[in-house]
Computed example of a mutant assay.
Amino acid sequence: MFRTGPRNLITDVAGLRVGNASDVRLKSGVTTIVCDEPAVAGVQILGGAPGTRETDLLEPHNSIEAIHAVVLSGGSAYGLDAASGVQAALRENGIGVEVGGFRVPIVPAAILFDLRNGGDKDWGRYPPYRDLGYEAAQAVGIDFPLGTVGAGTGALSSGLKGGLGSASTVLDSGVTIGALAAVNPTGSVTIARSRHFWAAPFEIGDEFGGLGYPSPMPEDTKTILLKFRDKQVGGNTTIAVIATDAVLTKAAAKRLAISAHDGFVRAIWPTHTPADGDLVFALATGKSDIELAPNDAIELYAAAGATMARAISRGVFAATPADGDLFPVWSSR
């Protein structure tokens, strides 16, 4: 059976630290994962409306083998500035790949759309995301809160506030896998309008309420519930990171990112729509020194989906109310 790591956070994967910066007036924020040492990375994008930076270099056929940090940000395309702030913080600490005598931190990033959430977006000439990225990088540690924080500050799902979620799993092989998700989908994470999460079969303990599936299932289970039912498409996206301390190649890291998308399917319905920019980064720190045999690797990829589904549910479960919210939080349902 799967069990959680000691924190049930992505930082149970050795070699990773997470930092958040939030602006409650803006109803937005930034989350960054900083690698203690450069980590092998991959990415898989399955949503139809992604917003990204430095993702092409993660493809297995390209030359960069490892990266220094990953950024998840609100703010739609404006939020891509957050990676520059994280880069600045890393550069001040001498972190980066050496190129012609210069240090260049490699910091891929992805954004979600939280402009339409009731926050004050009148920020003047320049958006605040570069400064928020710098602040998040300065705040990294192994413990961090979930819910209405960081990139999940202004996140919304269908009918409920979204949020920042995380979970971890320790496999029988000794390998740890962790997930981090900023949950802002067009679809719903709960069954119909109930308190029950789609990801209930993968829950460990009572980490998102312990309710299981409803019995009987609601009659409107097959009703497709969307965040905003109007003619305006876009305005959504779940962006996430799956990480492990196993030793992986870049190609295997990409396969891990692909497998983690199964967690989106288990936790959100519908998902991977043209109105979502759904994306998963994968990180492999190699800190366990374990290279998995093919059969053991199947367990890793299965755990990627299950752990991601749990992280997504925990993000919505942990959301807290704030002034000006458009949607209620799960705990009020």
Rank of each mutant, 00 (worst) to 15 (best):
M217D: 12
M217Y: 15
G141D: 12
A137M: 01
W198Y: 15
N93G: 14
D206R: 15
A88W: 15
V107T: 07
G159P: 10
A167G: 02
L90A: 03
D206G: 15
D172A: 09
G150D: 02
P185D: 00
P108S: 02
F113M: 07
Y134M: 08
G174N: 12
R130Y: 05
L112M: 05
D206P: 15
S84N: 14
W123N: 08
T176E: 04
T153I: 03
A200D: 05
P127Y: 01
T176V: 05
G209L: 01
I204C: 03
A136Y: 13
A82G: 04
A167H: 03
S168F: 00
D114H: 05
A82K: 00
G133D: 01
S157P: 12
A199N: 10
P105T: 11
W123F: 08
A110L: 02
R125S: 13
E135R: 15
L164C: 15
A179E: 06
R116Y: 10
P201R: 04
P108H: 09
S84P: 09
G85A: 11
L80H: 09
L160C: 02
R125L: 13
G159H: 13
S215E: 15
G119V: 01
G162T: 05
E207K: 04
F102C: 15
T148P: 03
T169A: 09
A181I: 03
L132S: 12
R195T: 11
S166H: 03
G209E: 01
